[in-house]
């Protein structure tokens, strides 16, 4: 029983947390892919930047959380999302749109986005150095609440662990996905976004204002990136190189889900997240209860993990390659660019 709870904590909770983060990043990447037709390499650094916006706001108004009884980082999140969205539109106007207007090959814009990612990294480290920061040590009100849930079984002495930021993350993700679904299927602009993803030339011919659609894309992508970055840093810690280990998994999630498919991106995010936690999990622990019933000549190793933790980056890559080889359209039948 305790082993199962350990599994639940290490795989189900941890996988859902990181899966939600990847999903939010991958939605942005997949929408930019769909509307602007390029792989946005600066997306992970948009997450870091959004998290820093939140952090600065928390430092500036540390008491804000006290009014509603939530961590201040979560309360200021909407402002950080707006700031990041504006920043993303600014990026597009300064760096990507001039290249689009010149009708360059898409790959040139991809290169420009790497240039942008290096610039964001440089600026963040210039102002923030390389030290890690904790949201809750600057929060004037709340510490990080950790819930320990005891299951009503005799055999279960271990508890289920879940933190306040994790619960807020799940609630936020559910709300965000619901809103996104409503936006894409019920509103005029959301439908126009799907239309432009389907057929950009016809969208123009129909009189759809493509600039507005592009801005909307950046608002959604930037806002979700800020939320993902902030919620991840609240749960763990805010590091200037936060983006480093996230870029490849969110690309993998977007492609596994099917490029251009927001729902696919969500599924892809969880697939990648759970694949990571499942492959670094030590399966030997689950075999321990059966120790006595296994014949003696089989020696149980103390550690059976598919991938050592330090090689975790391999997991999204393998998934990415597997999907490119067997099903390039992804699970949700996206585009193959």
């Amino acid at each position: 029983m305790n082993e199962l709870i350990f599994f639940f904590n290490k795989v189900i909770v941890a996988g859902s947390v990181i899966g939600s983060i990847y999903a939010m990043g991958a939605i942005g990447v997949t929408l930019v892919f769909a509307i602007l037709r390029f792989a946005h390499f600066a997306h992970a650094d948009l997450m870091t930047l959004g998290a820093f916006f939140s952090y600065i706001l928390v430092v500036a108004f540390p008491e804000l959380g006290g009014f509603v009884g939530l961590p201040t980082g979560f309360v200021v999140l909407p402002v950080a999302m707006v700031l990041t969205a504006i920043f993303a539109i600014g990026l597009d106007k300064t760096f990507y749109k001039p290249l689009r207007d010149k009708n360059v090959k898409p790959v040139v814009i991809v290169i420009a986005s790497v240039g942008v990612t290096l610039m964001i990294q440089g600026v963040i480290r210039l102002f923030a150095g390389t030290t890690s920061r904790n949201f809750f040590s600057v929060d004037g009100v709340a510490g990080k609440d950790i819930f320990r849930i005891k299951l009503p079984f005799e055999a279960a002495s271990r508890k289920i662990f879940i933190t306040e930021p994790q619960i807020l993350l799940f609630i936020f993700l559910i709300l965000a996905v619901g809103l996104l679904h409503y936006f894409l299927t019920r509103t005029r602009l959301g439908k126009a976004m799907r239309a432009m993803s389907d057929n950009p030339d016809l969208a123009r011919v129909s009189g759809i204002n493509t600039n507005v659609v592009v801005w909307t894309t950046w608002i959604i992508a930037g806002g979700l990136a800020a939320a993902a970055g902030t919620l991840l840093s609240m749960d763990v810690i805010l590091k200037p190189d936060l983006s480093f280990n996230i870029l490849l998994p969110i690309f993998a999630a977007a492609i596994v889900g099917g490029v251009g498919q927001p729902y696919g991106a969500i599924a892809g995010g969880f697939v990648v997240g759970f694949a990571e936690t499942l492959s670094v999990f030590n399966w030997a622990i689950l075999l321990r209860p059966f120790r006595d019933s296994i014949p003696e000549w089989i020696e149980l190793p103390s550690k059976i993990a598919f991938v050592p933790t330090e090689y975790k980056i391999i997991v999204p890559f393998v998934l990415l390659i597997a999907i490119l080889v067997w099903k390039p359209t992804g699970i949700f039948k996206g585009k193959v660019l």
């Binding site: 126009a192 389907d198 057929n199 016809l202 969208a203 129909s206 009189g207 759809i208 204002n209």
Partner: peptide, 20 residues
């Protein structure tokens, strides 16, 4: 060629025509 939005429903295609 390519004169429809394939993943949108028929009605949504018509709505897109009325975008302006």
């Amino acid at each position: 060629e390519q004169n429809i939005f394939p993943s949108l429903s028929v009605e949504e295609n018509l709505e897109m025509g009325a975008f302006v």
